[in-house]
């Protein structure tokens, strides 16, 4: 099997979108291009009313074919990993289910197989998620209320890098912050295999401003297409990676 690449956007925010287009619409656009959108909403401790809404977080992830979680900041480290891994499995299972339907006819999803047969199929799913290449663009909300949470975000991302780099497949991570000074989102860390250097970029994340979640997601989406174009020209028109579902 050719090496495959799974593409994800991980949105970490503590507020509702209040500027620009509907983030769920942009997430749907991303999903159509085989980029999964995951969302983690961070709740404020000791507040009965939260500025981040479960509905928005769920809507974006659902439209983006990904996973969403609403949590307090202490749970961020485990959640970042759980969401990333779960979305990988979900994407691969989706592809496998489609293949099953094509081979065995409709009504033959994983749920319709007895447990022992299902095991063999899921072993393939696990093999792929262990060996597939993964590209995650992390989109961090840097509005004022996120200021005291950035330290936790940093630790969670370093931990994510430790977990993902233990896999057999390759990983690439990039970090974008939003809002930027003029743009909706700015690149604060270029594509890298290791997130350990994240400490040096986090002070750069200026905090303040509105929450243009939709436009920021669009910026992330552009980054992926820029990257793919770059890869294509570098390989003289040949794509090195086979993308899932394409």
């Amino acid at each position: 099997m050719k090496p495959s690449t799974l593409k994800q956007i991980l949105l970490i925010t503590d507020g509702c979108s209040n500027r620009g287009e509907d983030p769920a619409a942009v997430a749907a656009l991303a999903y159509a291009q085989h980029i999964t959108v995951n969302v983690i909403g961070i709740l404020e401790e000791g507040h009965a009313e939260h500025s981040v809404s479960l509905e928005e977080v769920e809507n974006i992830a659902k439209a983006g074919g990904g996973v969403s979680q609403l949590i307090y900041k202490q749970a961020l480290t485990e959640t970042v990993q759980m969401v990333t891994k779960q979305a990988m499995t979900q994407t691969i299972e989706g592809v496998v289910n489609q293949e099953l339907k094509q081979i065995l006819g409709p009504g033959n999803t994983l749920d319709d197989l007895p447990p022992d047969k299902r095991g063999d199929v899921l072993e393939v799913v696990e093999d792929i998620s262990e060996t597939a290449n993964l590209e995650v663009l992390i989109l961090v909300d840097t509005s004022a209320s996120m200021h005291h949470k950035l330290q936790v975000v940093k630790e969670a991302l370093i931990d994510l890098s430790i977990s993902m780099n233990a896999r057999l497949g390759n990983n690439k991570f990039a970090i974008f912050g939003f809002p930027g000074k003029r743009e909706a989102a700015v690149k604060v860390m270029d594509w890298t295999e290791r997130l350990e250097n994240v400490s040096s970029v986090f002070p750069k994340l200026a905090t303040g401003g509105v929450t243009p979640t939709g436009p920021a997601l669009r910026e992330a989406l552009h980054e992926f297409s820029r990257q793919t174009l770059g890869k294509r020209s570098a390989n003289d028109g040949m794509t090195e990676y086979e993308e899932f579902g394409s």
């Binding site: 499995t89 299972e93 994983l110 749920d111 447990p115 299902r118 095991g119 899921l122 072993e123 799913v125 696990e126």
Partner: peptide
């Protein structure tokens, strides 16, 4: 969690 459970059985 079907996938995890099936792998545990394996």
């Amino acid at each position: 969690k079907r996938t995890s459970m099936t792998m545990e059985v394996k």
